[in-house]
Design a protein around this nucleic acid. Sequence first.
DNA 1: ATTATTGTACGAATATCTTCGTAAACGAAT
DNA 2: ATTCGTTTACGAAGATATTCGTACAATAAT
Lengths: 129, 129
Amino acid sequence: MKQIRPTESELEILGVLWEKGPSTVREVHDILSQTKDAGYTTTLKLMQIMHEKGLLDRDTSSKTHVYTAAISQQKTQEQLVNKMIDTIFGGSASQLVMQALGHHQSSEEELEKIREYLAAIEKQQKNNR
Amino acid sequence: MKQIRPTESELEILGVLWEKGPSTVREVHDILSQTKDAGYTTTLKLMQIMHEKGLLDRDTSSKTHVYTAAISQQKTQEQLVNKMIDTIFGGSASQLVMQALGHHQSSEEELEKIREYLAAIEKQQKNNR
DNA sequence: ATTATTGTACGAATATCTTCGTAAACGAAT
DNA sequence: ATTCGTTTACGAAGATATTCGTACAATAAT
């Protein structure tokens, strides 16, 4: 199985692309520069490298290139969460869950979704018995 | 607020120290080498650097030094989880929760803990209304 | 058509992480 | 006391990530 290991900066860029969809370097950079302090060419270079690595696809048909995330948010989340559980949560997924719920203000809506999800899991476990 | 950013390798070492408590380089290395392939002096050097950075404390009273994690597991989890939610989960904690529950087999016991936790959160939210 | 603006390409400097060889210090065993 | 195994200290090489200056190309504005 191929392990993808985007760096910190690369994840920030991927985050923008997942959120906004296909974007130019300028668009990505404008968003990043709200919270980060780096020059335009830095973002450009990063995205070029990510393209070489296969993390991004790009359309060069017009002068201003348009980039797209080449790896799925789902898959990336899966890998990073699993690693995180193993290394800093000592293998306990529930610990991570509680950490996440405790410190990020969750909306009633989100909590409802989670409750449904829990119910589904338990039902499944019963069936496997 | 001081941001702690242990590297990948540093997190592995912290993981061992959180799990086992105060340990020598040898002890840490023996555990790491079960899953990782690096020489003894590499682990030593890493732990020395971590000590310089303030990530580890150490007791040098006997020849064989004993290291301890200087940052709490709790605090580290909190920071990394929050960053993760922001960058790759688009700010949605519940998405992370579902990811965690979906791919790590959780025991009935763990699920029960989570349910209790959810209930507590909801109760609190009611009171704040 | 000339100039200004905006974008990409390239290369290099800087920073950071990871790895390990080698030497010196220490303690235990002979 | 000499030897042997273990440990720390140091330094440096190698790998990877991050940053940006500069040059050139394309487009838009005058």
